[in-house]
Design a protein around this nucleic acid. Structure first.
Lengths: 243, 243
DNA sequence: GGTTCAAATTGATTTGGATCAATCCGCCCA
DNA sequence: TGGGCGGATTGATCCAAATCAATTTGAACC
């Protein structure tokens, strides 16, 4: 499992117009406007990345940062014997690539076909000088991610399998709600194996727990990738053990 | 367990001199010098906080940030039924209090008597305007914390009890090394219960695992709080399952 | 329509760490 | 000097989730 190449994927349409980008209200772009967005457009590279390819791998020199435009990305760390912990799933509007030590401390892999904005740290640093509000915004993003990471530590350290699954469904549904997407029916773009590696469980336990929730009438599973949430069920409370 | 008061602890020596502070080379202070440090000294409040008191609790309005000068602080989140996950231990030179949503998303409690620098967010925001390098530094700190959080997720999701304990000892010993402290003998300022809540284990498992490591000759335990590491043992590798 | 193959589900059994239950130890203080 | 007490250790038993082992499902392809 050595570097399967930095995805020389289909680089098309590099002349991006950040000014009319649907995602400009998310990630760090949201603090920029007008001329500032044009400046950003001058340094961004848009790129398609095929499913299963890496944006980067743990240990790579951290020269770039990314915004996700479309698709799903997983971030993860692994142990020498292959045990893997997914530390987060990224969706359109999410940002990744921060690093201080010069190397990425985790791997980022496309789990669907993905479209990204790619920036050179070097180019972006110039803009950070000109627009300190960009750094403010990045600090806000990092701070939010830290809060999410702490929530995930609570899940991994102390929650039961059922609470983990319910927490996962709750977070996914909250995200859909914030993005104005249908909230009762979730489209899971990741496999059971990825869910297991995210929740610190095995594939079998994820599958069994979902089946149990279906039998209790808490969810429906029309297809493995689609979860329909029962209305009037307090997912947030159940995810915290308030059964 | 409602708010046991924001520690009206012994406020003494408020006329701090950041210019000669031992800790000024750590946390965000490290990017400031001369006159800038004087400006910082004008807004800082030094304070002693007794063991078992809170710096703040989850849900409190996040008006303040802190640097630890002396002692040990634990950060944690809890579930309604009392299950607790400690997300980090803080020692002299560490920073805490970042928040975006206006409320702290976790609790911070002194597990020894503690001495801190307390800043009002409001006061600090003024300095952030004047010195953008402060925000840069904070972003660096947040980014490091994020990397540590991801490492902890790997531990909580995928490591065995023995690997967790070895990882913990490794991190503690690395920190001691970086601070120029004796590295072979660790002084644990936290209880077995705190270690358990940090590693997602029970007190009994922590104790048993330490005993097993002692029997294998990997550590000595002269006193419950003191761990002596065997020389020539590759802690880093063992903590990753490379037995 | 049949074949292939990976993903998901379901079933049987095992097990690492939790839980329940005594001690043990050191420290404080009368 | 001995009793009380909280923290730590050790022992016995249990159980939730892992592991091992078949199916089942469904999409892709001929």
């Amino acid at each position: 499992m050595s570097h399967p190449a930095h995805a020389h994927a289909h680089e098309r349409c590099n002349t991006a117009s950040c000014e009319v980008c649907d995602m400009r209200h998310y990630t760090f772009c949201s603090v920029l406007e007008g001329k500032e967005l044009s400046q950003l457009a001058a340094i961004v590279h848009r790129e398609d990345i095929d499913q299963h390819r890496f944006l980067f791998q743990e240990g790579d020199a951290a020269h770039e940062v990314f915004n996700i435009l479309d698709g799903t990305v997983k971030l993860y760390k692994s142990l020498p014997d292959g045990r893997t912990q997914i530390t987060g799933f990224l969706f359109p509007g999410d940002f990744l690539g921060l690093s201080t030590k010069g190397d990425y401390s985790y791997s980022a892999e496309a789990i669907t076909d993905v479209r990204v904005c790619r920036f050179q740290r070097r180019d972006l640093n110039v803009m950070f000088k000109d627009y300190p509000k960009l750094v403010d915004r990045l600090l806000g993003i990092a701070s939010d991610e830290l809060a999410a990471a702490q929530e995930q530590m609570l899940l991994l350290g102390r929650k039961t399998a059922q609470e983990r699954i319910l927490s996962f469904l709750h977070v996914m549904s909250e995200r859909a709600r914030r993005r104005g997407q249908p909230v009762s029916s979730l489209n899971l773009t990741m496999s059971r194996a990825d869910i297991a590696d995210y929740l610190g469980l095995t594939i079998e336990t994820v599958s069994r727990t979902l089946t149990k929730l279906r039998e209790k009438g808490i969810i429906k599973l029309p297809r493995p990738q689609e979860v329909v949430l029962a209305e009037g069920y307090d997912l947030a409370a159940a995810a915290e053990g308030d059964a």
